[in-house]
Design a protein around this nucleic acid. Structure first.
Lengths: 124, 124
DNA sequence: CTAACGTACAACCAAATGGTTGTAGATGAT
DNA sequence: ATCATCTACAACCATTTGGTTGTACGTTAG
């Protein structure tokens, strides 16, 4: 049942969200989920709106959730988030080792697939 | 001390390089290191120069190396690359669990250190 | 030698990113 | 009720990104 397939765009968003020092810092600081956006924003040398945007990026990537509490919005990093990032790496790495590749080949029972698969674009 | 520190910019470049489907695909295809840049480029619906740039991004992130062979430039994925990415995640995750965080707080004698987290328990 | 190939790099362009300020809607405190 | 706070969101701007084409240069094949 193909549970573990993170789509390309999902992985794009995941890694993109992680590719920024401020956002990684936000992740570290929101494990406990007790910080509101404005509270968070006090910690950075930028405007409230800028931090708001960073949180939005993290949220779209599924790394963070917001929970309303009165007029505040508490930010909490999703405990499963690193797991998903790690799985994305794992998928890369298994292609690395050729395992997934080889498996697919076996299932397609192509006897001579050793070499010339490289010219096929993934895009479409 | 503190040997294992990937600097912020290094991690930025790492994750940014991984945050693109085409670049991840290049990584998967270059494990064997037998593909030249132009050979690689044949597989994608974009110009040679565009692929060249993607390879450059991967190279700056340390995910790939180029080795000259005659007039060709063979691209090879660095086997340790995923390891470094994983370590970056590990560093995040340990902050997650509070360990690094706690250490940093102590060293910076941040007033926020006062919390009910006396025990060392990694669960919460 | 000359032609073809593989690469490098510059110049250019559209779109996305990361930041700003400003405005407006909810909510809580006085 | 009024005021201060927290959030959301739009408009704007500079820089970066991801792509293009064109040019130049080294290397291999005829």
């Amino acid at each position: 049942m193909v549970v573990d397939d993170l789509g390309d765009e999902t992985v794009d968003r995941l890694f993109h969200a992680l590719a920024d020092t401020t956002r990684r810092d936000i992740l570290r600081r929101c494990v406990r989920g007790e910080l509101s956006v404005s509270r968070l924003a006090e910690g950075y040398p930028m405007s409230f709106a800028a931090v708001q945007k960073h949180v939005a990026v993290l949220e779209r990537a599924g790394l963070v959730t917001k929970q309303r509490s009165g007029r505040e919005q508490l930010v909490r990093t999703d405990p499963d988030a690193v797991g998903r990032a790690r799985r994305a790496l794992d998928e890369l790495e298994s292609a690395w080792r050729g395992r997934v590749d080889r498996m697919a080949r076996l299932l397609a029972d192509d006897p001579e697939t050793e070499e010339n698969d490289t010219a096929e674009g993934p895009e479409r």
